[in-house]
Design a protein around this nucleic acid. Structure first.
Lengths: 127, 127
DNA sequence: AGCTAATTACGAATAGTTTCGTAGATGAAG
DNA sequence: CTTCATCTACGAAACTATTCGTAATTAGCT
């Protein structure tokens, strides 16, 4: 059973890189993060070391450096984050959350169509 | 312009009470929180004092105590929280988030119907 | 006025996150 | 083998969140 560890914001940024690009070195992750924000190499290193201790990452020696990979799944992690908001902000009401999402001007017609398709498929599968 | 202050988890619990019941004393809020979890009176007091400093709450003297009210809106706060998850975990994709939500076993048919209704209304209003 | 119960104020302890400086280790190149 | 660049390890500092003990204040009651 996977533990329901909620990563911090900084940890999530690192996880995003590893999920997207697969197992990577600190150097690689730091380069990707540097595109988005100023961040020192040792800062990223330290964070990834801590995440290894927490078992969020695993690492393997490769020459003089290490290759880190995410241990926790992208899906289950997203579930934890979404559940948290669903519970704390929307009292567990998916439609309440949906209403908020639609109230955001950001949802395009294209997205809306995708969502409708999702619901349709979901209901068919359910029977 | 409303600031995009993201309340902490504990702060959110207090905000939920104030949003639900309107302006309240520390005693009242603490009583409500105590139903859900063990929490000391001075802990709640301190938190609400800090939230006042942060301008998340306003307070007004009433006899020997204070009445606190939420300054930040329920809707905009939920938007901030939802946006955060949408951006950090789902790269801004509402349908991606929706997929995750449906993947959760928790979404009932009743909720699903409400969501369909929401989308229908939303599309009608859009034209 | 004096007592009591409730409230606020203050500050400290704890824990967790985030950042980064510095030192030490290591592999590669000459 | 020595030098150099790169990487890891370690620890400390700054910051935030959370909790709560204790002291001071206040309103109301007799």
């Amino acid at each position: 059973m996977t533990k329901k560890l909620k990563p911090t914001d900084s940890e999530l940024e690192i996880l995003q890189v590893l999920w997207k690009f697969g197992p990577s070195t600190v150097r690689f992750v730091n380069d990707k993060l540097s595109v988005l924000k100023e961040v020192g190499y040792t800062t990223t290193l330290k964070l990834m070391q801590i995440m290894s201790e927490k078992k969020l990452l695993e690492r393997e020696k490769d020459g003089r450096s290490h290759v880190y990979k995410a241990v926790i799944e992208e899906n289950s992690t997203k579930n934890v984050l979404l559940d948290k908001v669903l519970e704390t902000a929307f009292q567990g009401s998916a439609s309440g959350l949906m209403m908020q999402l639609l109230g955001n001007k950001k949802t395009s017609q294209d997205e809306l169509d995708k969502i409708k398709e999702l619901i349709k498929n979901f209901e068919e599968k359910k029977q």
